[in-house]
Write a protein that binds this DNA or RNA. Structure first.
Lengths: 322, 322
DNA sequence: CCCCTTATTGTCAGATCGAATATAATTGGA
DNA sequence: TCCAATTATATTCGATCTGACAATAAGGGG
C-alpha cells in the first residue's frame, strides 16, 4: 500500500528545486484583566516562529519548542490556523519559497518566565478598530471610514465604486448595518487593499497615524494575527475554548469579561449566565471570591468532563446580531 | 521592514537538511443524482496531487494545474483544508519530510472531459457508515459497533475502557445519543485507532470486509477525505456553498437532495423550503422543470448577489439535532 | 373522472433569545 | 446603626426560530 508506483505525486521528476523552507509560526493569546494579549518578540512586531526541522516529530511539537525557546512560555492548547505560501508574501528578495504553517495557541499569562526579549501586548494595539466594548465604535473609525470611501471612489468605473462601497459597509457595519466581530480578517485585508495600513504598498501611500491604523508588524504577521483573531472569535461560539484562558477557578463575571475581551463587544449578563449554566459548562467550587465591592461572587471551575460528554456542534455564546 | 535582522526564523543556521518536499492535494467533490462524488485517480484510491513547484504563484494555482493535468477537470471553488506534516504520516521509508497542503474543491461532474485515468466515486464507498439517509443506520454499523466495543474492552484498565466506550458512543450516536453528521473525521480516527480500517496497523489486525469498513485509500488519503467531508458538512450550515455544486438552474427538491447527499441525512421538505426562501438565497427563473411524475416544480437560480450583500455568520440549513 | 405523485402553503407547540426587572449580599460612609 | 452604592443572582416576558405535521394544488395515467 505504501509503495504504489502509479499515479502522480510520486512519478514526478525529483528536481531539488522544488524544495522549500517551511516555518512554524504562533499566535499565542492570553487574556489578562479583560485585555486580550498577544505574545510577541522583537519590537512587539514579530510573532514567535522558527523553521520546521527534521528532528521535530510533528509541527505542533516543533512549534512548542520554538515558542518555549524564544519566550520561555510553555504552550497548552494549540490548533492549526492556516498555511501561508503565496510566492510574494514575504518580499521578493529570496528566490526560495517561504511557507509558514501558522497556529493559534491559548494560555495564561501568569506562567510567565522572567527575562527574555518577548512581551505581551493587547491585540487592540494592532487593530484599534476591533474593540467595540465601549458600546460605540472606537475613536478613529470615522477617519478610517472617510479614507475608505475616498478609496472606493478612486476606482475607475462606477461598478467597482459601488462594489467597494458595499464591501466596506458590510465589513465595518456602516449604513445601519450591524457590526460583525468575526470579520476581522476581511477588515484588515480591506484596509491593506486601500493602503491604509503601513504594511501595504511598500510605503508609497501614507496611512493614518498608528493610533488609528494600528501598530504594524513584520512581513505578513499582522495578517496572520488577524486570521487568528477571526478564528478565535468564531470558535468561542461553538466550542468551550475560553476556559483555556481562565484560571482554574473564576467567577462568572470574570468569564464573561474574558469572552467580551475576545469578541470585542459587550454581552448581556443574565443571558450569559443562563447560557453557561444550562450548558453545564461549569460547577461551583463552594468558595466565593474575595470581593472588589458589592456582593461576593461564587467561584466556579470548568467541568472538564463536558469535553468528553458532548460533541459540541452548538454551544453558542450569546453573541448574535446587534 | 522586509529585511529585519533580529528575531528567529531568520537567524537560523541555514542547514539545507531542513528543507522539505511540499505536496498539494485535492479533495474534489461533486454531487450527481443525489450521490456525493469524489474525484480520484489510480485505482480509485488516490487523490489528485502534485508537488508545490517554484513556478506556482500560489498553492491554489498550483493545485488547479495538477488537478487539470491529472484529471482534465477545471476547478472552481477552492478552500484550504489542513496541512499534514507529521513525520510518520507517509511511511518511514524516506528520510525527507513529506508535507501535504490539502484543499477542498467543489465542482459539477458534467464538465467532465474524456478519457483519463481518473474517475468519480461516491464518497460513501469510502465511508459506508456515514450515509444515514435511509433513516436508519446503514447496514454493517452493528458489526462496527460490536468490534468497537470489543476494542474498548481490550483496554487495560477500567478507566480507559470507560473512556473508549464513551468516545465510541458519542462519535457514532450509540446508546440513544443522536447522530452527529459532522463527526466524520472523529469516527474515521476512532476506527483507525481500533484497527478497523485497512490503513491501520500495517495489516496486522484483520478489519471487517470492505462493505462494512469501506474502501481503503493510498497513504493517509482517506483521512484527508474525512477531513474534507467534515469541513463540508459543517460549512453548508452557515455558508451558501451548496450552489457551487448545482446547475445554473434547479428545483428546490434538487437543492434539498444535494444538501442531504452531503449531510448524509434527510431533512424536512417544508422547513427546508422556508429556510431557503426567507434567506432569499434563490430567485425564480419563471420556468418550470420537465417533470418526473407529479406537479411541475418551479425552477430557481442562485442569487449571486447575496455573496456581496451579506456577511453570512448564520445561514444555517435545518440540520440540527435528531 | 379517479387515483397517484410531487409541489406548495399553512399551522402549531416547544425551544431559544434578547431585553428588562426584581431581589440578595456585601462594603463604605453618614 | 442605617443608608446608599455596588455587584451578584434570580425571574419574567414577548418575539423569533425550529421541528413536526397537516392541508391544498397541479400535473400524469389509467
Amino acid at each position: 500500500m505504501e509503495d504504489r508506483q502509479t499515479g502522480p505525486g510520486k512519478d514526478r521528476a525529483d528536481d531539488k528545486a522544488d524544495e522549500a523552507k517551511v516555518d512554524l509560526i504562533a499566535v499565542v493569546v492570553a487574556v489578562n484583566d479583560g485585555e486580550p494579549c498577544l505574545l510577541t518578540i522583537g519590537q512587539a512586531d514579530t510573532l514567535p516562529s522558527g523553521p520546521f526541522a527534521l528532528e521535530h516529530r510533528s509541527p505542533q511539537s516543533g512549534l512548542r519548542g520554538w515558542v518555549e525557546q524564544q519566550t520561555g512560555h510553555p504552550l497548552g492548547y494549540i490548533e492549526q490556523l492556516y498555511t501561508f505560501a503565496d510566492r510574494d508574501r514575504v518580499g521578493a528578495e529570496r528566490q526560495q519559497r517561504a511557507i509558514s504553517i501558522s497556529y493559534l495557541a491559548l494560555t495564561r499569562k501568569e506562567q510567565a518566565t522572567a527575562s527574555c526579549a518577548c512581551g505581551w501586548h493587547s491585540w487592540y494595539e494592532y487593530f484599534p478598530w476591533e474593540d467595540h466594548r465601549s458600546g460605540t465604535p472606537p475613536v478613529g473609525v470615522d477617519i478610517l471610514r472617510a479614507r475608505l470611501i475616498e478609496w472606493a471612489d478612486a476606482a475607475g468605473d462606477p461598478a467597482t465604486q459601488r462594489e467597494r462601497r458595499q464591501r466596506v459597509a458590510i465589513a465595518f457595519g456602516f449604513d445601519d448595518r450591524h457590526w460583525n466581530e468575526e470579520l476581522t480578517l476581511q477588515r484588515y485585508e480591506l484596509l491593506y487593499e486601500a493602503a491604509l495600513v503601513e504594511e501595504a504598498s511598500g510605503g508609497k501611500a501614507t496611512p493614518p497615524p498608528a493610533a488609528v491604523s494600528g501598530k504594524a508588524m513584520v512581513a505578513d504577521h499582522r495578517r496572520i494575527l488577524a486570521t487568528g483573531v477571526t478564528r478565535l472569535r468564531s470558535k468561542i461560539k461553538y466550542r468551550p475554548v475560553v476556559f483555556e484562558l481562565m484560571r482554574p477557578t473564576f467567577t462568572l463575571l470574570q468569564l464573561q469579561r474574558t469572552v467580551e475581551a475576545l469578541a470585542g463587544r459587550l454581552i448581556d449578563k443574565p443571558n450569559f449566565r443562563r447560557l453557561v449554566e444550562q450548558q453545564e459548562l461549569v460547577e461551583e467550587t463552594g468558595d466565593t471570591s474575595v470581593d472588589t465591592g458589592g456582593r461576593p461572587a461564587k467561584l466556579y471551575r470548568f467541568r472538564r468532563a463536558v469535553l468528553d460528554e458532548r460533541a459540541f456542534a452548538g454551544t453558542k455564546l450569546p453573541l448574535s446580531r446587534a
